[in-house]
Design a protein around this nucleic acid. Sequence first.
DNA 1: TTATAATATTCTTTTATTAGAATATAGTTA
DNA 2: TAACTATATTCTAATAAAAGAATATTATAA
Lengths: 114, 114
Amino acid sequence: MKNFIKVMKALSDSNRVKIVKMLQHKLMCVCELREALQIAQSNVSKHLKILEEAGLVDYKKDGLWVNYYLTDGRKSPYASSLMGNLRHWLEDDPEITELIKRLPHIRREDICKK
Amino acid sequence: MKNFIKVMKALSDSNRVKIVKMLQHKLMCVCELREALQIAQSNVSKHLKILEEAGLVDYKKDGLWVNYYLTDGRKSPYASSLMGNLRHWLEDDPEITELIKRLPHIRREDICKK
DNA sequence: TTATAATATTCTTTTATTAGAATATAGTTA
DNA sequence: TAACTATATTCTAATAAAAGAATATTATAA
């Protein structure tokens, strides 16, 4: 039950759903996600942590960058099923399509200084 | 997006998930649900409203009783898919099995006076 | 070693959610 | 009609979530 609730809660926030939908297209670092969502960096980090603890995303460090990517949800049947469905769910949502359209122009080289 | 979030939120609370799992076994009135969950009647009503607005349950009035039952989630693909999955999900959850086991003994004739 | 950059964590405020108690409503029966 | 019962709604308090600002951490480069 606990894990089920955790997965459901993780996907009950629109910013987190947006993160998932973006990561379906490419692996992204925190500053790219911040730029895309236009929210404070600390919030991006916190949302990512919630998604990670639900077993929905994972990350690899690359120098200063931390690159987040989707897991297959192997950690739980709930995560797995929902991640599968979310590949086609919300594809026509206006907010999502707008976000995805902007995605190619959000590049860490332009946003961060390194 | 809005409807998706609504469905996810509706299923992000353990009392509401319990209601869904119980309704898989039989149609139930508010006082039976209250007895099963051991929470205030007003809370049961409020949880039922949230489930209803997410398109997960519906009700039919029968005199003083209001009988709640599961919909097939026809209202949205999210509701439909999750309701389908919830038929087998959490079947082995200790809290749920305990609850379902008690279900046959929770009868409105015994609980309410009428 | 110092400085800098990307991310995580902490602190604080605001907003939502959940809860029970009290009250209102609607249907039933005396 | 008046009294009663099941449910819904309102009110208020407690708890949890989400937000941004500020600070801490970690890795890199000067």
